[in-house]
Structures are given as structure tokens and as C-alpha cells.
Design a protein around this nucleic acid. Structure first.
Lengths: 117, 117
DNA sequence: TTCATAAGTAACCAATAGGTTACTTATTGC
DNA sequence: GCAATAAGTAACCTATTGGTTACTTATGAA
């Protein structure tokens, strides 16, 4: 997954209403655009724009049958980020951040003392 | 964690250069603002603005000593999202999405057939 | 003490995001 | 066949994002 794709995926997820769309599609897979839009205060067009964002990063997949486009939540992109974070950060999660700070501060103090000694 | 906070956290992370800042602070905790900025093509002011975004969501913590402000990466907010996703989505990650789609499509077909019967 | 450096603030600018209304197209059901 | 409905497109508006340069403040060091 490219850095740019991660940008797009995370910013797609960084919007409460879009996450609520995913929640709704998780509960009721196969809804149409208008059916989904009926759950929101904003216009159908606005919902459609949010959907386009979600579809571009494949968090939402769709299949047209007749005049309605059925929408589906795809959890895989989230899993990809999740897995990446696991490998990258899980080692850090065990440490206490406060400790990192104080340890580094001590190191800075030491550096100074050595310099002036 | 409030929905709005999640918005802020994810959009803070949805920027490749900001993530690179976190990477640099992970490797070299305690850097100052200018030292960090020296790794980027953009101006120091731009870096400072990105830092403000990261600090607001506590992905970066800082402590001022003398004239330099030492910066630290805090992995905890990422862990919080990670944990939330684990509980919310891990059940889905085992299924194949294609199966969800075809199953729902079948359900839609059935509904139609029952109606016309 | 004075010069260099770390950091912050202000004002500005262009591009993008998030929303709207109005209009078009294509199925479906009576 | 025709009215209602599902969806999509276009044009527009405002606020926010991401960047810039110019200026200020405060600390460290020769």
C-alpha cells in the first residue's frame, strides 16, 4: 500500500458521518443510495459525494441491479492499516511514554554535563 | 474517545509528511523543532504547523528546556484506535467480502421472487 | 555584550473539502 | 404509456488546509 493510498484511506475514515455510513452498511448490507441517505440530515447529493470518497478507497463496494445501486461495506482496507500498525507500534505500546520522556531528558542533561566537564 | 476526537486523530495521521515526522521522532526522540524541520523540503513554519496538529491530538508531546522545545512521539492514541478497530471489525476480517456481496444479492433476488409469487 | 540561533506570531494565498440547488437520465409499477 | 422514484451531473458557495514570507522574542555562547 502506497503512502498516498494511506493518506486517502485515513482521511476517508476521518469523518464521523462517513464512519456512520459504514456502520449502517455493516448492519444492513445492500442498501441503496437513497435508503442510506434517508438516515442523514444532509442532502442525498452530499451523501453521494461521501460515498464516492469511500468507494475510491474501497471501503464501500457496490453493484447495480436495475435502478438501485446496492452498497456494501468492505472491512479489508481497515484490516490492512490495523496490521501495519500492529507490526510498527506494538512494541511501543508496552512501554510508558512518560518513561521515554524522562529518559531522554536525562540523556540531554548528561550531554550538557559532559560538554562543560 | 469522542467521535470528534477520532476525526482529529485520523486526519492528523492522514498526511504522509506528518507520519514521517512521527517516524523521525520515533527514531530520535527529543529532537527540537528546527532539527526536525531540517529533514523536510517545506519551511520550518510549515513543519511547526504540522506539529501543532500532531500535538493537539497528543501524538507528539513536548517539553521546553532553555530555548529548544524537545519533541516526543506518543504511540498511545494510535493504540486506542487500533484496539477499537480490533473489537469492532475483527469478526469481519475472517469472512470473505465477495461472499457477503453474493449472499446479499441472492437475498435481494429472493425478495423479488417472493413478491411476484 | 553582542551576535547567532530556536522558536513563535501574523498576514496572506491557492487548492481542496463539504455542502447546496437545479437539472438529467433511467427504471419500475400502476 | 405515464407518473414516481433511484441515481447521477453540473455549477456554485464557504470554510479549512497547507503552504508561504516577514517580523518578534528569548536564550546561548564567544
Amino acid at each position: 500500500m502506497k503512502s498516498h493510498d494511506i493518506d486517502d484511506l485515513l482521511s476517508a475514515l476521518a469523518h464521523a458521518e462517513r464512519r456512520r455510513m459504514l456502520d449502517l452498511l455493516m448492519e444492513a448490507p445492500g442498501m441503496g443510495v437513497s435508503a442510506l441517505a434517508s438516515h442523514f440530515a444532509m442532502s442525498r447529493i452530499a451523501v453521494q459525494k461521501h460515498l464516492r470518497v469511500l468507494e475510491r478507497v474501497e471501503l464501500v463496494l457496490s453493484r447495480k441491479q436495475g435502478r438501485t445501486r446496492h452498497l456494501f461495506f468492505n472491512p479489508i482496507p481497515i484490516q490492512q492499516i490495523h496490521d501495519r500498525w500492529t507490526t510498527k507500534y506494538s512494541a511501543f505500546w508496552s512501554e510508558r511514554v512518560v518513561d521515554i520522556k524522562t529518559r531522554v531528558e536525562a540523556a540531554i542533561r548528561d550531554r550538557k554535563e559532559n560538554k562543560s566537564a
